[in-house]
């Protein structure tokens, strides 16, 4: 081998002034690429078409909720409002009629908050302890109960709703917010337990052993070692539960009385009530108001939301 094959640093300036004799004719360096080839256009075109399908309803909702009724009767539901009005929002929040009373969605909003907050906290607390016990403190039969729990997630709610009415009546919680909270804790348990079980079993088992050698007990290990390092998974669980419980309709309509109906049930009653003139702008404002909490969580949480549903789905 000659030196020339491995040019040293000292040789470099000499080469710069020398004629470029080493390269032969033909392609050299980076291959030219077109930024937009037909394939890319198809990919982006397809995505944009689908994005329109997905965004259009949101657009229509917002636009309609900002128009007055006269403009809606004349115009195009896709067109932006000529004159923006927030009156429908005010009306939906505090005046719309739900058949029984006419104090708007605000009542439903506060009911939903009163249901979602304790139900989220309780269901996550219970499920996290379940997952911890299933991974680190297995006992005879624990896997059997877990299997039943996972199977239970697929049983149609319709099969269980009536006996639960009887149970709630027996323990005196039928019609109250707390009865509904209990129902959400029960039906949220499979997926959230699975979430925590998978997370805790992904942690190194030595951590648990080390804590035992350090003399921490069942609750000590859970509260002082595992929970502080599980913040991401708790966030995922909160996202899943808040959206799931907020969006529930079936349990709300069965297990609560009209004065404690959650927002979704109230929305349905406002929109699908037969009496009175239909105020589409108020309906859309009410719809947006109902969707606002889960949408806010969705847009704020970004990838965690995706991680939550993927974790629940793929491993299930």
């Amino acid at each position: 081998m000659s030196d020339a094959a491995f040019p040293t640093r000292a040789a470099a300036p000499a080469r710069a002034s020398a004629p470029r004799g080493r390269l032969l004719d033909g392609p050299a360096g980076v291959a030219p690429t077109r930024r937009m080839n037909p394939k890319r256009i198809m990919v982006y075109g397809g995505l944009i078409v689908f994005s329109i399908y997905y965004l259009l309803p949101l657009w229509v909702m917002v636009m309609t909720s900002l128009k007055g009724m006269p403009e809606i009767r004349m115009g195009n539901i896709f067109a932006p409002p000529m004159e923006i009005t927030f009156e429908p929002w005010v009306k939906a929040w505090s005046e719309a009629c739900t058949g029984l009373n006419c104090d708007g969605l605000s009542r439903g909003f506060f009911n939903s908050v009163a249901i979602t907050v304790p139900a989220t906290i309780l269901s996550i607390a219970v499920a996290a302890v379940n997952g911890y016990a299933l991974v680190n403190w297995r006992f005879k039969g624990s896997e059997v109960f877990f299997t039943i729990l996972i199977f239970g997630a697929f049983i149609p709610y319709q099969v269980m709703i009536y006996p639960i009415v009887i149970i709630l009546r027996e323990i005196g919680l039928m019609g109250s917010v707390w009865g509904l909270v209990l129902v959400h804790v029960v039906f949220g348990m499979p997926i959230i337990t699975l979430l925590f079980r998978n997370y805790f079993s992904s942690l190194p088992p030595e951590l648990f052993k080390a804590a035992r050698v350090d003399g921490a007990g069942f609750w000590g290990i859970f509260l002082r070692v595992l929970v502080p390092m599980s913040l991401p998974i708790f966030t995922v669980a909160v996202i899943l539960q808040v959206t799931g419980i907020w969006n529930d309709f079936l349990f709300g309509v069965i297990y609560t009385r009209p004065d404690s109906y959650p927002m979704t049930v109230q929305l349905n009653n406002i929109v699908n009530s037969v009496q009175g003139v239909r105020e589409y702008n108020v309906n859309m404002a009410a719809t947006l108001l109902t969707g606002l909490v889960p949408l806010t969580i969705y847009f704020l949480s970004g990838k965690l939301f995706v991680r939550g549903i993927a974790a629940g789905a793929v491993k299930g």
Binding site: Y54, W246, N247, F249, P294, L295, F299, V306
Partner: peptide
């Protein structure tokens, strides 16, 4: 964009 409706209630 594709996933946001999943966050909404069926009622909405």
């Amino acid at each position: 964009i594709i996933l946001f409706p999943y966050a909404l209630s069926f009622i909405v």
